[in-house]
Design a protein around this nucleic acid. Structure first.
Lengths: 243, 243
DNA sequence: TCTGGTATACTTGTATACAAGTATTATATC
DNA sequence: GATATAATACTTGTATACAAGTATACCAGA
């Protein structure tokens, strides 16, 4: 709905992606936005027809979404789980868990390079705000946190992140698009929060990190809740996937 | 090598599994045991021929293993990563992380039902020891921890567990098989440790939980290291997957 | 009207075919 | 002998076909 082609996921992020990836990204957005309601049963054949691809990429996409816990693969059809408030809280539990873990590792390593990189990303975020580019802002926001996580070089923490990332990304994307329209002033606070985060890493200050992390989450979570609910409301009139 | 049919993964655990699952379970065991060495490049076609199935289930299996971080999907071929000591430590980092998180939730809920279930599993483990059934013991051991994790009803923590579980399972399986042969006396200590864990849950005693958790990990990790190394040694003479 | 069985229209899992792309090898040219 | 180019033997991603299983609907018979 945001893009002119009727797809929710930014098409430029899919330049080199396979059909399976495209489908998974788009389906994920539709599920998280509430366009496809929780409880809907998705059929491989129907999806294949809708997306004009064969069942192979559809199957791939469904497997991915199932591993992200937003659908549940059953004997007949895939049941949409979606993101209720409970799931959103749970995601932030996990983010808090892994980012806290990561911070404990970060305080033990040299962070000069990391800080430089984070500062660059922050600049990018500012530019994105300036030009009201919600998608770019979201991208950089996700990248910011991913960069921190990657810094500690922990493959299994990275594994968790990789599982969480797509859902996070979609969620943030939807949140930011909404806020760019309605709550532009939010972004100064978000930027300040990220600056605080960098500062926490620089000074290796646990308390500051904890504060900025919690603020960041509260910010996104609290504010986004009504976004999400409004999206749900919006989609109540939408046609069901299966008739 | 353990089973007469030349497969490492217990065939009875695959009764209702698809070909893709079979392949992923068996490949995982071979990779973790070191039978397939780290660095090996796996070809879809070759694997399909080896396992006498088509490429479809092989692709599925490779996707699964890639999400578990034991192989890496590249443009041409899948590169085996395997489990070095670093990865094993990382896995236990994550287990420690999630089980600690879970415990914090557990102290807030009614644990009667959980404790009953855990006690049952413990009894099963004892029986498995009595009859020297390493596979059954491993199964119950994994189930023990999974039961605790499931008790808190946290879908995204469960998601992490689901990603970790197969690798854990394979690792524990190999470890226990070895120890049943060589270090039978270990098991009294493992049982005692699990009893301690139950006790920690019953009394909601953080310190006791932390102790038993760490002991359990040190136990498995420390003791298993040499298992794993010996497995690696063992596999040095093994024929490469690709010629 | 209710029960039992059968036909049908779905479903998944697997095999196979094919297109497009990428290393590798061999050949031709200098 | 060294280098550029072409042939080849791979690779992945996707489409399609088919078998086996399952829910649904429908119809026959009581």
């Amino acid at each position: 709905m945001t893009e002119s082609n009727g797809f929710l996921y930014p098409s430029k992020w899919l330049s080199k992606a396979s059909a399976g990836d495209r489908v998974s990204c788009e389906l994920r957005m539709r599920i998280i936005s509430g366009e496809i309601e929780s409880g809907t049963i998705l059929s491989e054949n129907k999806l294949a027809a809708d997306f004009a691809v064969s069942r192979s990429p559809i199957r791939e996409a469904l497997k991915i979404l199932a591993s992200e816990n937003i659908i549940r693969l059953e004997r007949m059809g895939a049941v949409v789980i979606g993101l209720s408030e409970k799931e959103i809280e749970e995601i932030y539990d996990v983010r808090l868990l892994i980012e806290s873990f990561v911070f404990e590792r970060i305080v033990k390593i040299d962070t000069n390079e990391l800080i430089k990189e984070l500062s660059k990303i922050l600049e990018m975020m500012k530019v994105a705000i300036k030009y009201s580019d919600a998608d770019e802002f979201s991208y950089q926001d996700v990248l910011f946190h991913e960069t921190i996580i990657r810094a500690v070089n922990h493959s299994y923490i990275l594994m968790i992140w990789n599982n969480l990332k797509p859902v996070m990304e979609s969620f943030i994307l939807l949140s930011m698009r909404k806020r760019f329209k309605e709550k532009y002033e939010d972004f100064t606070r978000i930027i300040k929060n990220h600056e605080l985060y960098i500062e926490a890493i620089r000074t290796k200050d646990r308390d500051l990190m904890s504060k900025s992390l919690h603020d960041n989450f509260d910010d996104v979570q609290g504010k986004v809740e009504d976004l999400w609910i409004s999206q749900q409301m919006l989609s109540k009139g939408v046609v069901q996937q299966n008739d």
